[in-house]
Design a binder for these strands. Sequence first.
DNA 1: GAGTGGTCTAGACCACGAG
DNA 2: TCGTGGTCTAGACCACTCA
Lengths: 248, 248
Amino acid sequence: MQSVPSHRHVIAADIRTQISTGRIKAGERLPSEARLASQYTVSTAMLRSALAVLQGEGLIEKIHGKGNFVHHPRRIVTYVGGGRRAKPESPAESALRISVRTTSLPAQGQLIGLLRVSADSPLTEYFCLSHEGNSPHSSARIYVPRDLSPTDAPDESSCFNCIETQLAELRPPLSEVRERVTTRRPTPEEAATLRISSTLAVLAITRVAADSTGRVVEAAFLVLPGDRADAVFTTHHMIGERGGEDDG
Amino acid sequence: MQSVPSHRHVIAADIRTQISTGRIKAGERLPSEARLASQYTVSTAMLRSALAVLQGEGLIEKIHGKGNFVHHPRRIVTYVGGGRRAKPESPAESALRISVRTTSLPAQGQLIGLLRVSADSPLTEYFCLSHEGNSPHSSARIYVPRDLSPTDAPDESSCFNCIETQLAELRPPLSEVRERVTTRRPTPEEAATLRISSTLAVLAITRVAADSTGRVVEAAFLVLPGDRADAVFTTHHMIGERGGEDDG
DNA sequence: GAGTGGTCTAGACCACGAG
DNA sequence: TCGTGGTCTAGACCACTCA
């Protein structure tokens, strides 16, 4: 158990404090690594490993050739499970800009099992990418059997956790939404798409929704960066729903 | 991105292949770092950073003074949300040995808000640690108002996701179970307790359960290592429940 | 004490970004 | 071209495990 508190964690803690106390502000560039290394009288390698700790926490962003930057205070966006819409009251939610790319493809691999369709049956893929300001926030790949997919482009404002909402308007209500949550490192593509460090873990949610006939109407793969997203699942509706949540 | 495929990832991929193809078997020790470094003709520092990649994936376990060991094929244990019991049919579940430590403490910090009790009101903490064979698997800290906590020791076999199950026997059924899922790095204590790398992300679940009167009867903090656990949340019971899940 | 991993140094050289 | 971060080396020294 870490009987040696290792220099890098001391340095990381110091920089972390400087960030949280506002001595280094959001968006600002840190001194160069060489400079910081001499300040702390360590080698650049050690200083870099200290920064790697902060990077894994999503506190800083490293940009090759430019410098290390303090991330803007990550607004925690909460994904609401169970096929329910996040309340629009959430200001963070409304600040998300979502782009959708629609493609067609035949069912392959795990999609066959998840959607319970036969191989090569036609599917529609919606690749949703949400942005918070300039920077990408999270991504989702949603697969729907072709005959169920709306002919017109999906409503962008309600793409993220709500393809099933759209479908609900057309079909009988969903009887089951099953969501499997895992955590892992992002793939190189995901890290590039979401512009996150490959050392920052993501929440990966696999969602399968079925209607009352048991037919699977949607399979979705969501990727949420661990530093700026969480997920909430609630069973049994509450009688008097509350607003503020104080889980600090 | 990643125009330079960096040597360490090549080495990591090579060792990963050797593990997955069985050339190095589970539980076995890898050659020493110095030996591997000379095999790949890299410095020990680079070789160590390659191993760090595998460590972050939960593939290997580093033991100071002994060596690097291939993890036993991690049995994925699924946490079932919504206050529902995991089906006992699951072989992995039955292989879990759970120890419980009970302590009393006054309500403090976020517990006050989560449990909706006044400060310093008496609580009972159940610290549950599940083991799979010799090694710890996951941990849970469960807090229950003193007047609701069973006087006798909790049923060890049903500790993990089911303090509420015990309570359900005594009280009206739960009206709401709310679970917030996040991912983060383990704290040093958690890393030590669960014997995982501090670079391996964990799933952290905060669970709050209320009974039909709206009273919060339980707050729980679960920590599941990301390489050997996932969580499933299902809404609306299915008519014909299925057993096998093929999501590979 | 021999062998292991853990920390750390003081560099070299390469790749990227901006002027 | 210059300053930045990214990769990597060839060591030294320390801490842990086990015989």
